[in-house]
Each structure stands twice: as structure tokens, then as C-alpha cells.
Nucleic acid binder design. Structure first.
Lengths: 98, 98
DNA sequence: CGGTATCCACGACGATACTG
DNA sequence: CAGTATCGTCGTGGATACCG
């Protein structure tokens, strides 16, 4: 559980993962998706996720340099967990039944 | 998702919740279950979980004072999430399939 | 466009000591 | 038995500025 928890921990981590579940995204696209997310934090998070083998960074040659972040199989494996987090969060938000 | 994540965040939180899923436990019983868990951190965690309405603290009169921590309905609602965390963690631990 | 470098604030965690 | 008090450390995250 610690491993799974570490994989999704961090204020922005789940949001970034969720965005990438829809397909590869560029750095700027991710920033655009979350205006409140600073460049440094996004950079930190992406590096961490890459180190955990949950996503890969792909550079396209040319100018300006194009970069895409794509989830790996391990990354997409987190989908059910994200769904469950959403489901449980909704349940907790709903009025407590006594 | 942030709400669900907050509910299970913290190094010991999931473990404590998991232990309480088996039934009410005393402070000392919880300490015994996790020898590496300091009294202060356990105290912090229990207070936080109580504030979130995930468990309740029950005192029995007498000497010495007996205390039990029991999950509420909201607390037990986290079970599927814990299961999913375990499942996902196992999947991530397993050899990466490329 | 796609980042890195610095610095700072805050909260989680841990160790130690003490209490009713 | 069931905690609280205090202190120190570290990681996350935010603000700002700068770079190829």
C-alpha cells in the first residue's frame, strides 16, 4: 500500500496522472490544464513519475523542441486506483449517514 | 480525489485504518501492532481521523482508563480504497511488463 | 517552448521526556 | 494504560527569476 500511495501522493500528482490518462501531453499543455501549478512543481512531479517508471519523456527533434509525456503500462495501471479515489472521495463528500 | 487522498495520506494512516477494519482497538493495541510507530504520531493520526469523522474515541470508566477507537460508517467506507491501494501496490511491485 | 536555480514556508514525522 | 509537550529534521510545494 505504501508503494501505491507513494505513486499517487502529492497535491498535483493525481491530477497530472489523470490528464495523461487521456493521452500524451506536452509540458505546456499540462501547465495550461492546471494554471495554479507552478513550472517547478510540475517539473519535479514529472521527474519523479519518470523515475518511478510511470511515464516516459519523449523529445521530438526540431525547433522549438517538442516534448511529450506519455504514461507507461505501469502508469496506466493506476487508473483503477484513481477511479476508486474519486469514488471514495465522492462518498466522503456526501452527507454522513449518522 | 483530494478528499479521499487526504483521508488515507500519511505513512501510518492506511495501516491504522486497516487494523481498525478488523474491529475496535485500544491505543496500546495499536502501538503493539506497529512497534515503529511513536506515541505522538499515533496520537496525531487518531485525532486527525476523528476530526474527519472516520473514527470515534470511546472511553470506558474505571481505572485504569480504557479507551477504544472504532471506525465509523465513513471510516469503513474506505475499505475498497485500501483494497485497491494494496492491489495496485502489488501490481507496481511485480516485474514491469516492459 | 520547455524547462532549471534559488529561496522560503509549512506540515509530517521522529526522538525524548513527562503526566494523570 | 493512554496519552501530551517539546524540539529538530526533512520533503513538498510555492514564488520569483532566469536559460537554451
Amino acid at each position: 500500500m505504501e508503494i501505491a500511495l507513494a505513486a499517487v501522493s502529492g497535491r498535483w500528482t493525481t491530477l497530472v496522472l489523470r490528464e495523461l490518462m487521456h493521452g500524451p501531453r506536452s509540458f505546456t499543455a499540462l501547465r495550461g490544464a492546471f494554471p495554479a501549478l507552478g513550472a517547478k512543481v510540475l517539473s519535479d512531479r514529472l521527474r519523479e513519475l519518470a523515475e518511478r517508471g510511470l511515464l516516459v519523456r519523449e523529445e521530438q527533434r526540431g525547433f522549438p523542441v517538442r516534448t511529450r509525456y506519455r504514461l507507461t503500462a505501469r502508469g496506466t495501471a493506476l487508473r483503477p486506483l484513481l477511479v476508486e479515489l474519486y469514488r471514495t472521495g465522492s462518498a466522503l463528500t456526501a452527507p454522513p449517514r449518522a
